[in-house]
Design a protein around this nucleic acid. Structure first.
Length: 503
RNA sequence: GGGCUUGUAGCUUAGUUCGGUAGAGCGACGGACUCUUAAUCCGUAGGUCAAGGGUUCAAAUCCCUUCAGGCCCGCCA
């Protein structure tokens, strides 16, 4: 057993111990251990224990995190998923052979099962007085330092398992992530929504403006795209007669990676028949404020340098009013030439492009307003030009019934009264397709089957998508999406095995 | 894509300004210690200073290239 592979972190001394154990006939990785008590259980059950050993025994297991050797006694800290507890191991109790075995062969990072009695040390810590222990898993890699832990950000992301072993804060973040997802499920399921799974491999991608990943199916002999959104399939379900549907969807977008974007990210998309964009705003507010309260027991939570207040009702204003009150530009007061001049003097990137007031509205909104929306704020009534799947506004010419939710300058939700007019939809996608063929890599393809579906008739429907990763960021006070994705996309290390080596 | 910035022992790091034998703590290994908890005490080993090239009598340090991160901006959700 030699540590010659440069890709392995195996510790030679530990490999040597492993070999000695094997030669001594020790079962190295036994298949089971009857754990009767978790550490949390033990601490709760013996909360008022005194200095005398308990009558009852405990049987628990976990990883060794620190060892304090005192010669004929040893103190060690044992940790499982929810807690840590101190072990007290005495030569007198274990006998020479077993005690020496512990000192020679049990290392920090190993997983052991123990049986013992509970007592409180003279400095007051609940401790297990160990009667016996069993090696359950020998660790052949050494753990990071006990005090500073693992700080190296890159290593924390690439080898998340180490991060989770030693950094409680990281473990807490992902516990919260898991809770958020299950709370969303419960919230929707309990209100009669059905959860479905729609294709991730799609012959035609759609539902958002983004560049896709492309892949190839050998037997079909055709290209497939990984979905950028589940939207068009979920609406087919509404056509089919499912009136309240949602999907917790992983989406894939072939774009840059930064603190707010990962190539694969999670969304929940929700559709409900006989509802409109205003109902979807209410639903969004309901879900998110519920999450905040369930997780933090309050509607006010800190994020970065701010306190966010999620207590409903949230601020809500049209895009025109947002630009007027926050950007200080009333677009209806100016001609297109004047708007262009304003954009130019404010040095807004892309000031040359817009051709009508609505396009300037979007430009000003993105440049002047978005960042200012710190508290949860709905912005509604988006121009038709950049909303190809939203229903045209019931009263405002050139606008759609669409909203987005902004929190701390981040777009967290996007929803609308779904476009269900098949002819309108056809025309809008034709326009997108022209843009795409004109070189706009993020414009949408025409999905004729989807338009046909609308042709059979989709009831008036409201829909919304919520970015899960960003929600988790907000609820855990993390400023990078990589802190809330267990295994964020990272560039491959040069010395690792490369995919080209695989058959 | 642009700007700034980081990479030194298993981990956390000093040393880089101003070139002169690579230093510490934790961890590991050996020893002492029967209520410690970042245990303590004594001793030992452990480094291609991210990789490659250049300047120089001499490079972790200066210069160039490359690799992998981080932060900010642009694009997107």
């Amino acid at each position: 057993m030699d540590n010659e592979n440069a890709n392995l972190n195996f510790d030679q001394l530990r490999l040597d111990k492993l070999q000695q154990l094997e030669e001594a006939g020790v079962i190295l990785y036994p298949p089971e251990f009857e754990r009767k008590d978790t550490i949390q259980d033990i601490k709760a059950r013996f909360e008022s224990i005194g200095h005398e050993k308990s009558e009852g025994m405990v049987f628990t297991a976990g990883r060794i995190f620190t060892v304090r050797n005192h010669g004929k006694t040893v103190f060690a800290d044992l940790g499982d998923e929810d807690g840590r507890i101190q072990l007290y191991i005495r030569k007198n109790d274990l006998g020479d052979e077993k005690f020496d075995f512990f000192n020679r062969f049990i290392d920090r990072g190993d997983i052991i099962g123990i049986s013992g009695h509970v007592f409180r040390t003279k400095v007051g810590e609940i401790t297990i007085w160990v009667d016996d222990f069993t090696l359950l898993t020998k660790s052949v890699c050494s753990l990071p330092e006990k005090f500073h832990g693992l700080r190296d950000v890159e290593k924390r992301y690439r080898q998340r398992y180490i991060d989770l072993i030693v950094n409680e804060e990281s473990r807490q973040t992902f516990r919260t992530r898991s809770r958020i997802i299950s709370l969303i499920r419960q919230y929707l399921s309990s209100r009669g929504f059905l959860e479905f799974e729609t294709p991730i491999l799609q012959p035609i991608y759609g539902g958002a403006n983004a560049r896709p990943f492309t892949t190839y199916h050998n037997y079909l002999e055709q290209n497939l795209f990984m979905r950028i959104a589940p939207e068009l399939y979920l609406k087919r379900l509404v056509v089919g007669g499912f009136e309240k549907v949602f999907e917790l969807a992983r989406n894939f977008r072939n774009e840059d990676i930064d603190t707010h974007h990962n190539p694969e990210f999670s969304m929940v998309e929700i559709y409900e028949a006989y509802r409109d964009f205003r109902d979807m705003m209410a639903l969004t507010e309901g879900i998110i404020s519920h999450l905040v309260f369930e997780i933090h027991d309050t509607y006010q939570i800190p994020f970065e340098d701010s306190m966010l207040d999620f207590k409903p009702p949230w601020k809500s204003l049209s895009m025109e009013d947002a630009v007027k009150t926050i950007g200080n530009i009333d677009i209806w007061q100016y001609s297109v030439d004047e708007l262009r001049e304003i954009a130019r003097t404010k040095r807004i990137d892309g000031w040359e492009k817009p051709e009508n007031p609505r396009e300037f509205l979007v430009l000003f909104f993105e440049a002047l307003v978005e960042d200012q929306l710190v508290q949860p704020t709905f912005v509604y009534d988006f121009p038709v030009e950049n909303s190809p799947l939203a229903k045209k506004h019931r009263t405002k010419e050139g606008f759609t019934e669409r909203f987005e939710l902004f929190i701390y300058g981040m777009e967290v939700a996007n929803g609308f009264s779904e476009l269900n007019d098949p002819l309108d939809q056809l025309n809008r996608l034709l326009r997108q397709d022209e843009k795409r063929k004109g070189g706009d890599a993020e414009a949408q393809m025409i999905d004729f089957d989807f338009i046909n579906a609308l042709g059979y008739g989709m009831p008036p429907t409201g829909g919304v998508g919520l970015g899960i990763d960003r929600l988790v960021m907000l609820l855990t006070n993390k400023n990078s999406i990589k802190e809330v994705i267990l295994f964020p996309s990272m560039k491959q290390m040069p010395d690792g095995p490369s995919p080209e080596d695989e058959e």
